[in-house]
Amino acid sequence: MQTVAHMRSAVVSALRARYTHGLLRVLAIACLASLSHAAQQSPEDARWGDIRQALLGERAISDGAALLALDTPARALDAAVVPVEITTRFEQTAQRYIHKLYLVIDQNPSPVAAVFEFPGDRDWTRISTRVRVNAYTDVRAVAELNDGSTFMVKNFVKASGGCSAPALKDPAAAAAQLGRMKLLLPDDAAADDLFLTRLMIRHPNSSGMQFDQVTRHFIPADYVRNIEVRYNDQLLYKVATDISISENPMIAFGLRNDPGKGELDVRVLDTEGRQFEKRFPLTSTQ
């Protein structure tokens, strides 16, 4: 329950920072502060420079193509729902595994979309989610290994307006279902030596950037902040998420050579302090 207390304090600070959007509030301020001394760099490079500084300090980042692949559309069809998939290209073992994974969208108002953490005892091979993209931007996956070395892959994505555009097509229906969770196990979930789960959470993930003309106010930011997934009572992954994650957050997670039996326990916390928990029994499909 230590975790929940920790999450609560994170929520309090997020609420205080509602208009600077939580996850890396300090970073946002750093970005603004550095605009002035970035004359010799392009604005794009300067922005990434600030982000990397805030995330990793002076540590070197190596090309990650041998370890990771990042799949994004070159041009987003819907800037509010841009699919992103990260696959690993090496076998993760207790000796060598990804400890943290950062998903960064440079040009978004809050560029760090998600920070995953893994305990390192499972060979996961695939993560996919959906993000909002606000402007033409680099999208990056940065993996920090257990030995502290870091690796990066990136793609350029053309899209605009994803953070301020409402994806909500039917707000009444969405509000009625807030917090509902669903775990999708495909028919062939355990095929190809891959155990794949798709976790879906009903949540508007309001960015705080959408203006309500009737009330003359911005619709307050209200988004999923932490997700923890346990597999047979062992932590599988936890992820801190931000407003760049699309409405109705979805995280697909694939494990190699896993029977996919037992139970998944999912705990979700949002910026309003709402907590949702659901246990999903896994029925073998083979």
């Binding site: 699919p83 998939e85 999708l184 495909p186 028919d187 062939d188 798709r198 697909a252």
Partner: peptide, 12 residues
């Protein structure tokens, strides 16, 4: 596509 575990990219 959903039944076979695919995502939006595969569907598109």
């Amino acid at each position: 596509v959903i039944r076979h575990g695919g995502g939006i990219a595969q569907a598109v």
